[in-house]
Amino acid sequence: MNKALLTDFTVDKSNNTIHVKREFDAPRDIVWKAWTTAEILDQWWAPKPYKCNTKTMDFRDGGFWLYNMEGPEGDVHWCRADYSNITPEEVFEVDDAFCDSEGVINEGHPGSHWENTFSDHEEDRTLVAITISYKSLEDLEKIVEMGFKEGFSAGLDNLDHYISTQFKLQKENKTSSRPGVATYLNFPGNTEEVFLFYKKVFGGEFTGRGLQRFEDFSFPGQPPLDDSNRKLIIHVELTIMGGHRLMATDAPESMGFKVTPGNNMHIQLEPDSKAEADRLFNELSAGGEVEMGMKDMFWGAYYGAFQDKYGINWMINYQPV
């Protein structure tokens, strides 16, 4: 957690409530998205070593989120969050309860009502103020005894890492709203060697932050990097002939990847809107093989990848300025 950011956790037994205030180092739209998008919630909501898995989510007044917390020993705990009173990027309320895998609420466990309020707080920072109400003091004390403060604080630490990494990459890697095209390359661990060679051949310069390494970023829910991976390249850009950009990352087998000729090169399209990103993805991927559907990613982009019906690999990367 960034110690410079405001954080406060208060238990008010006289009113059967818990009050949490937490500041995040990113604009309100990014923080709001992290609280209201299933793919992002799955990356931070559960305290490690637990994992959060969304079964279904419908973020609207009257909609609900059905998810589970999966423990390291295979234990699974299901929860349901029913949404109400949503004002985009300002506030939403939730009735939270334990349930089964079909969303049937377990009345034997304490439920709660959450009011989550989002507000601007200093430059490019957001304050989230949370009031959690319980039906009785007994319910409140039971939740506290179950370790709610420690678990929720750990989840918020995960979110702090996620947001700071995403916003940092977004600011560093996107400086223009103009659409563009680049070639994206994957290597099994020698990206730095390859791009130093290309730099010498083309006489170009690395753009953005140069050689960005995995050790420079934190990834919620992922195990610590071993020494062999910490110095590998997570992102690099080199402008070559005619203003064309080459980009690359290391994708070693030790991280679960397998780079082979044919899957190590993509054409990356950078549209100027989310709607255009969806259009390009849907039309180009028709009849092909989807590697990853369009979704929000940790570097601040709306991203998807696929191989078209002719065997050509594409990536769609919409990243707002």
Rank of each mutant, 00 (worst) to 15 (best):
N2P: 00
A4E: 11
A4Q: 08
A4C: 02
L5A: 07
K13E: 15
K13Y: 06
T17Y: 12
T17W: 13
I18Q: 10
I18L: 12
I18K: 08
E23Q: 13
E23L: 01
A26Q: 07
P27T: 02
D29N: 09
D29R: 12
K33T: 03
A34R: 04
A34Q: 06
W35E: 01
W35R: 04
T36E: 02
T37R: 02
E39W: 05
L41Y: 00
D42K: 09
P49F: 11
T54L: 01
T54C: 09
R60N: 03
G63F: 08
Y67Q: 02
Y67S: 07
M69V: 11
G71F: 06
E73F: 06
E73N: 14
H77S: 15
A81H: 11
D82A: 14
Y83A: 00
V91S: 10
V91A: 01
E93C: 13
G108I: 03
P110I: 05
P110N: 05
T117H: 11
V128G: 01
A129E: 13
A129P: 01
S133A: 14
S133T: 11
S133M: 09
E138L: 12
E145T: 00
M146T: 08
E150P: 10
G151F: 06
A154N: 14
D157T: 12
N158K: 13
D160Y: 12
I163F: 06
S164K: 14
F167W: 15
L169M: 11
Q170K: 07
K174Q: 02
G180Q: 10
V181P: 01
L185T: 01
F187C: 02
T191W: 02
V194I: 04
F202I: 05
G203F: 09
G203C: 08
G204N: 10
E205P: 05
E205L: 11
T207E: 04
R213K: 15
F219H: 09
P220T: 05
D227S: 14
S228W: 09
R230M: 09
I233N: 04
I234S: 02
V236H: 01
G242C: 14
G242V: 00
H244A: 13
R245W: 03
D250P: 10
S254I: 03
M255D: 09
M255K: 12
G256D: 08
F257T: 14
H266E: 13
I267C: 07
E270I: 06
K274G: 00
A277Y: 04
N282L: 08
E283K: 12
L284I: 03
S285Q: 04
A286E: 06
E289S: 07
E289T: 13
E291A: 15
M294P: 09
K295Q: 11
M297W: 08
W299R: 12
W299C: 02
I312Y: 15
I316K: 01
Y318H: 08
Q319K: 15
